[in-house]
């Protein structure tokens, strides 16, 4: 069923409001659950919103040796992440105005965001910036083959690399969608998610020691409203990656009809699923310590094995389902 253009536009804007508005809260939930698990109280749930508002009100400070790359990088990175939102079916199918690209475009946009941030990190000439930059690009390069294989693993049964088509197949198949290859692909994706979004055990966003930083080292030079864009972007990158996981692995609940009641219900379901997934990630984080940097390669290799295993299970063992 196709919807009218105004309805599509409303849903389109709704997706943006959902992701942009909810992502600070999701981060707060994540921090809160982690703190509780570790026996602390944790910050209030509205703290990330207050932090962002405070940062946006501050002036912009730049290093003397920095060029235009430093000035425009936060906006370009933010824009690249924003552009990925319509590529994911959040609560309604077919995804509103989402046919302009597929998951490979999403990989490209994430790479663009990483590229410009890493470049800006080398701009001021600080040692820490260079260190964070090389580590981030290194992890990104290792994550990219995993991402492609995961897309192939999820996408090949549906015959499409678009998240919307994959989710539509899941919704129509119902519980029959769950299968051993799907499970392997999900494991690969979760490992990828940890690397791509810089969660523990890969990167500790709460660290205070520069030498162990990855993402934090890259943004050391940033302050004020530029930092706000980067931090907000980081939060909704996590929401995007988790939203994609939900759409690919457990798409049940996404509305396939455009009636207001069903779509509202689907919005409620996706919010609950996002909260639940963030709680799971924070429990995962609370249980591990940060790994040595070079063990990331082990993790991505493992993820490649899982993703390829999923493909092999479908096509070699299953004889081409």
């Amino acid at each position: 069923m196709t919807a009218s253009v105004p309805a599509q536009l409303v849903a389109f804007v709704g997706e943006y409001l959902l992701v942009l508005g909810l992502s600070p809260l999701l981060l707060a939930v994540l921090g809160r659950v982690k703190a509780r698990t570790q026996g602390r109280v944790g910050p209030p749930l509205l703290q990330p919103y207050r932090d962002l508002w405070k940062l946006i009100g501050k002036d912009a400070v730049y290093s003397k040796s920095a060029s235009w790359v430093t000035r425009y990088a936060p906006a370009i990175s933010f824009a690249a992440l924003l552009a990925t939102v319509p590529l994911i079916p959040w609560f309604v199918l077919p995804s509103p105005l989402g046919t302009f690209g597929d998951l490979i475009v999403l990989v490209g946009l994430l790479a663009l965001s990483r590229f410009i941030t890493a470049l800006a990190a080398t701009d001021a000439g600080s040692t820490f910036g260079g260190m964070g930059s090389t580590r981030e690009m290194w992890m990104g390069a290792l994550a990219e083959p995993v991402f492609l294989l995961v897309i192939f693993a999820f996408g090949s049964p549906a015959g499409s690399t678009q998240a919307g088509a994959i989710a539509a197949r899941g919704v129509s198949l119902g519980i029959a969608y769950a299968s051993p290859p799907l499970l392997l692909a999900i494991v690969a994706y979760v490992l990828l998610l940890l690397v791509e979004t810089g969660r523990l055990p890969i990167d500790n966003s709460a660290t205070h020691l520069e030498l162990t930083m990855v993402h934090e080292a890259m943004v050391l030079e940033y302050s004020g409203r530029d930092l706000a864009l980067l931090e907000w972007g980081r939060g909704f990158k996590l929401a995007i990656m988790i939203g994609l996981l939900i759409a690919l692995a457990a798409p049940w609940g996404i509305s396939t009809s455009w009636t207001l009641a069903l779509v509202s219900l689907a919005v409620g379901i996706v919010v609950i699923k996002l909260l639940g997934a963030h709680v799971l990630v924070s429990r995962l984080e609370a249980g591990v310590a940060k790994w040595r940097l070079f063990r990331v390669a082990d993790l991505t290799t493992l993820a490649v094995v899982f993703a390829f295993g999923s493909l092999a299970l479908t096509y070699v063992v299953g004889g081409g389902a």
């Binding site: 501050k58 002036d59 912009a60 730049y62 290093s63 003397k64 001021a124 004020g224």
Partner: peptide, 8 residues
């Protein structure tokens, strides 16, 4: 914002 240029 007021843009401030300072040392690294």
């Amino acid at each position: 914002p007021a843009t401030v240029v300072g040392p690294m």
